[in-house]
Structure formats: C-alpha cells, structure tokens
Amino acid sequence: MEFFSFGNIIVYIDKFIKFINSIFFVILIIGISFALIISPVDYLQGDSVRIMYVHVPSAWIGLSIFSLIAVSTILNFIFKIKNLFLLIKSLAPIGLLFTCLSIVTGSIWGKPTWGTWWAWDARLTSMLVLMLFYVLFIISLKYFKNNENLTKILSILSILGIINIPIIKYSVEWWSTLHQPASIKFLGTSSIHPSMLIPLFLMLLVLLLYCALIFLMKYKTEIIKIKKQNIKRL
C-alpha cells in the first residue's frame, strides 16, 4: 500500500505529464494530417467520412470511461479506497466531454449522410441516456458532501448506467436502427479499409493522450486539495 501513497503518486504524475507534453504535439500533427489530408475519401460518403475520425474515438472513450468509473465506484463502495474515489472524480468530466462530442459530431455527420441531424433510434437514444447518467454522476459528485450518501448514490447510478453500456454496444444488432452496425469488431475482420483505419487509430491515440493529460492534472489537483486540508498535521 505504501506504493500508492500520495507522495509516490504525485512523482509519477509529474513524470507522465512531462512525457505526454513532449510527444503530444508531434502525434497530434501526424494524426490530424492523416485524418484530414492523407487518408482517402469514402466511395459513398466522400469527404464527410473524415468526421468519423473524431466521432468514433470519442464514442469509444465515452463508453470506456463510463465502464471504468462504474466499476471503480462499486469497488469504492465496497472497500472504500481513497485513490479510487479520486479516480472517479477526475475521470467523470472527461467522459462527459467525449460523450457529448461524439453525439455532436455524430449529428453533424448524420445531416449530410442520413439527411437528418437526429433520429430517435435505439443507438442514438441510448447514447443520450449515457450522457444523462454522466450528468447525474457529476451533479451528485458536486452536491453531496456526505461521503456515505454520495458513494451510495454513485453506486446506484453506476449500476443503472452500466446496464446501458451493452445496450449501446449491441443496439445496432438487436434492433433495426438508422445507425449502421459496428465496423470494427474484436474478432474477425473490420469492414473499414486499412487506409482509413490508420487515421482512426492515430486520432484515438491523440485523444487518449489528451485524456491521460487531463486526468493526471485533475488527479494532482485532488491530491493537493487533500494535502492542503491536512497541512497543519504534516
């Protein structure tokens, strides 16, 4: 447990922030140039396929962060681990941002492709529900000061919200939706041409690095907040 003391963590945070700062802009420029210039147009969608390079990674990040914080919340509720609580607090805003971004960019892609900004199909609606859960999560983090109540409410939200995750994932297969089925599968070949997968994964890397940076900064802020309260006892 000594390894996870705030002192050790903050040293690693500083190292990671420095590392990300040193490589971020190079990867950003490579990713953007692949996404906007080098990658080919789609045979049907033309250049609007480029929106996918920010839309899909955002959606993935929004979903995975929610799964991560939901599991952490439940573990934190059972075992009361201080670091897990800080993790939840630092990750939630990032997840909300990317969920919103994926909804907005998806809607911008939908206008030229489908002919509508929004449709109440199962995928889009369940994504909106995920956003709602993020909002409730963050509001409870802000307004419930009592720790015991807060963890209870967060666990309820997590359980309700995590049921939504497989619904989002499989909505396009279970029901008829306007949204197309997944192009990239864990097993089997993807139905995206390799020349379009490169920018997709590069942009995913860029956004993941960005998430890591924000996460580390927020985590450091939380540690400082706690240390400030205890400064007299140091």
Binding site: P40, V41, D42, Y43, L44, Q45, V49, M52, T113, W114, G115, T116, A119, L178, Q180, P181, A182, S183, S191, I192, H193, S195, M196
Partner: peptide
C-alpha cells in the same frame, strides 16, 4: 414525408470499390 439514407458499415476508398 421524409426520406433518410441508411449507411452501411463499409468504409473504403473509391478505387477499392
């Protein structure tokens, strides 16, 4: 009243098509 185009999950450059 309204027509929406449905896109499939295939993405590829025109040459490939």
């Amino acid at each position: 009243d309204r027509i929406l185009a449905k896109h499939d999950e295939n993405y590829m450059p025109p040459q490939m098509k």
